[in-house]
């Protein structure tokens, strides 16, 4: 428990650094491209187009989902995926790729995954704004439910931090963990209600899928962006479950991180 408070305290104390470092991070990943940071938006755009073509136009043959056209339905859910996916994959290799450079600095190591995640936050926010604009002009105007977005954004960041604390520590010690993380991420998009509809599945299969806390976030974003209702209170136990999972993961993550961080450099 004490290591959890320690990690939280470090995050708050270094918040200024997190913000500044995340900007340099964003810059250094995109410096090589002629289009620079445009790729942070172009990449999701290309993927959305192909997913719509395959799943919406091809497999669903243009049918809508409970009155919502497939494109809008998918867009509202996939937005958060473009934040989760790179954050987890970059976050889990954040420590072992940078430790040589920043092993002796005046900030705590728990900040490293945080600033990497924050560097993915800026393109995400731009993407949310663009998606909102698209939805606004294609029949889903901004509604009161939209104020759930900051809450779900906060929930996403909290979950991503908790996961990255665990995976960044483990992948520094055993490099294979990074491969496992990549493999899980690759299948994860199909285990979430992003590209296909899960209502038609048996009740118990849906419940199993809901064990995944990312399910909560995708559905939450969708409810907020499409104005489908108050997802936070419509299923209060699920909300409670989500935060319990975040708490447990954060607890494990900070305990692992604090236990091993002194020796990270020895594992290289």
């Amino acid at each position: 428990m004490s290591s959890m408070f320690k990690v939280i305290k470090e995050q708050i104390e270094s918040f200024y650094l997190i913000r500044r470092l995340s900007l340099y991070e964003l810059k250094s990943t995109n410096n090589n491209n002629y289009l620079g940071m445009m790729w942070e938006l172009l990449n999701p755009g290309i993927q959305i187009a192909i997913y719509w073509f395959v799943f919406g136009y091809g497999i669903r043959e243009g049918r809508d989902i409970d009155g919502v056209p497939f494109f809008q339905w998918m867009l509202a859910g996939i937005v958060v995926w473009f934040f989760i996916n790179p954050s987890i994959s970059q976050g889990s290799k954040s420590i072992y790729t940078r430790i040589r450079m920043i092993s002796k600095m005046s900030f705590p190591m728990s900040v490293i995954p945080t600033y990497v995640i924050f560097s993915k936050l800026y393109p995400h926010m731009v993407l949310v704004v663009i998606s909102t604009a698209i939805l606004h002009f294609t029949g889903y105007p901004i509604s009161i439910y939209f104020i759930q977005i900051p809450y779900f954004l906060f929930g996403t960041i909290a979950l991503l931090l908790a996961i990255s604390l665990i995976t960044s520590t483990l992948s520094t010690i055993v490099r294979d963990v990074q491969q496992i993380v990549q493999a899980i991420l690759r299948i994860m998009i199909y285990l979430l209600p992003i590209l296909w509809v899960t209502f038609s599945l048996p009740e118990w299969v849906q419940s199993v899928m809901k064990v995944n806390p990312l399910f909560y976030l995708v559905e939450g974003y969708r409810h907020a962006l499409l104005g489908q209702g108050w997802y936070i209170i419509s299923d209060p136990y699920y909300t409670l479950y989500f935060w319990l999972i975040v708490f447990i993961l954060f607890w494990i993550g900070s305990a692992l991180h604090v236990k091993f961080r002194k020796h990270f450099i020895d594992f290289l």
Partner: peptide, 21 residues
Amino acid sequence: AGLNNQLTGRENIELKCLMLG
């Protein structure tokens, strides 16, 4: 000594000093 290859010299100076507090 811990320079980021992707960034320019000037950005490296800023980054490194920032990290040193």
